[in-house]
């Protein structure tokens, strides 16, 4: 979703998700599943895309988790056998070459992936938990609670996301924790809004009324009746959100406000490689390609899950 800023991502995400949930429109007439060859071939390609995306994400998660164990050159040392900005090649070691100052591209890419995923998982996790609780409370209790929550959420959303992120980054010490905190704060609003709107529609459904008539406590209704029904809609959003967060983290690192060096980050690598664009464009294209693939994969998987669980027109 977001191409431009982390914010665009997050803000559009809310729209996307709301569309999904509110989409009561007629489904597209998939001109009847006739066996027109072209359609089915394309459909098969789509599913190939899904498996490729999954494979990439699994690979990424694997190298990120086992980065310390894998036979990689340390990311902050120079590779002695190669000059700086060595290009890609069929070598046994360092197939991706070296960066602007002669460090291993492969190693920096892998450790950058670890940073990105760590930040993504942590911040999405925090905003998911806090946002869901706030949304559940606002949607079920309504009244004053809802009013106050809505206005606070709107306040967070009133900042263009990247601007808020920049502000948070400049306030806090430059560390992974600051980045995670900033992204988590940004994420609370969308999750809370999503859960709130789902809760609002669920709160009047028969099974909730039945539980209430049986004398269930508010807490029980919120966590045992409503929450399980909110989850399917959120799962796909988690993936889409991870994509937005990785983009945001990249943007921040790119601007030099993210993860402090020498720890590598994809955004930082793009920025460092930028001045060598005309002579060694791979310095930019390798981390940029990795980020693009990751975001695309997360979106593909999230989209697939969304169509599966929520149904409806797949927008993007």
């Amino acid at each position: 979703m977001d191409v431009t800023t982390p914010g665009a991502g997050i803000e559009t995400l809310v729209g996307d998700v709301a569309d999904t949930l509110l989409d009561t429109r007629s489904r597209p007439v998939s001109a009847s599943p006739s066996d027109r060859p072209s359609t089915s071939r394309i459909r098969r390609l789509g599913s190939v895309g899904f498996w490729l995306a999954t494979a990439w994400l699994v690979l990424l998660a694997f190298v990120a988790v086992f980065a310390n164990v894998l036979p990689l050159h340390p990311y902050d040392r120079f590779v002695d056998s190669l000059p700086p900005r060595a290009s890609m090649g069929f070598r046994l070691s360092e197939p991706l070459g070296t960066d602007a100052s002669g460090r291993s591209m492969l190693s920096r890419l892998v450790f950058g992936a670890r940073e990105s995923l760590l930040i993504g998982v942590a911040s999405v996790g925090i905003s998911l938990v806090i946002g869901s609780l706030i949304g559940l409370a606002a949607g079920y209790l309504r009244g004053r609670v809802d009013e106050v929550v809505t206005i606070l959420l709107d306040t967070i959303l009133a900042f263009p996301a990247l601007v808020l992120l920049l502000a948070i980054a400049s306030v806090g010490a430059r560390s992974v924790n600051t980045v995670i905190a900033g992204l988590a704060i940004l994420g609370i609003s969308p999750f809370a809004r999503l859960v709130r709107s789902t809760t609002l529609t669920l709160a009047d459904r028969e099974f909730v009324l039945a539980a209430r008539t049986l004398g269930a406590t508010r807490r029980r209704i919120m966590f045992r009746e409503i929450l399980p029904n909110v989850v399917p809609g959120i799962i796909s959003v988690v993936f889409l959100f991870m994509a937005a967060v990785i983009v945001a983290e990249g943007s921040l690192s790119f601007l030099g406000l993210g993860v402090p060096p020498p720890v590598p980050s994809w955004g930082g690598m793009v920025n460092e490689g930028r001045q060598w664009m005309s002579t060694a464009p791979q310095l930019v294209f390798i981390p940029a390609g990795a980020l693009l693939l990751t975001v695309l994969s997360l979106r593909t998987v999230g989209e697939r899950i969304r169509v599966r669980f929520v149904g409806g027109v797949s927008t993007l």
Partner: peptide, 23 residues
């Protein structure tokens, strides 16, 4: 829906949304 133009557009635009400006 699901035709060549539709699929092609979806593919291209999904790359568009996955490429932030710094990329």
């Amino acid at each position: 829906v699901g035709g060549i133009v539709d699929r092609g557009t979806t593919f291209v635009t999904s790359i568009f949304v996955s490429a932030p400006p710094f990329i």
